[in-house]
Amino acid sequence: MKFQFENITQLFVMDGHGVFVWTAVLVSLVVMLWLIVKPLADSRAALKDVSGDITRAALTRGDA
């Protein structure tokens, strides 16, 4: 197995096909990152909501 390009620049140029290949890679990575970050952010928000509700309920009862 050997590295197919003479240098890193060639890896990005890919004989003129680099713009297509790297666009595909970049867009895929962004979408995949969203698939991880979105549910994590949703979970955090949901837990924060619940703890907020509990604190508010405690405050109105006046035992906080």
Partner: peptide, 22 residues
Amino acid sequence: LFTRAEILRRERKSVWVRELAL
């Protein structure tokens, strides 16, 4: 991850989610 987010959202009234939140 998406399922877990949905679980927390739909089970927010349950005791174990409230404990988790605190």
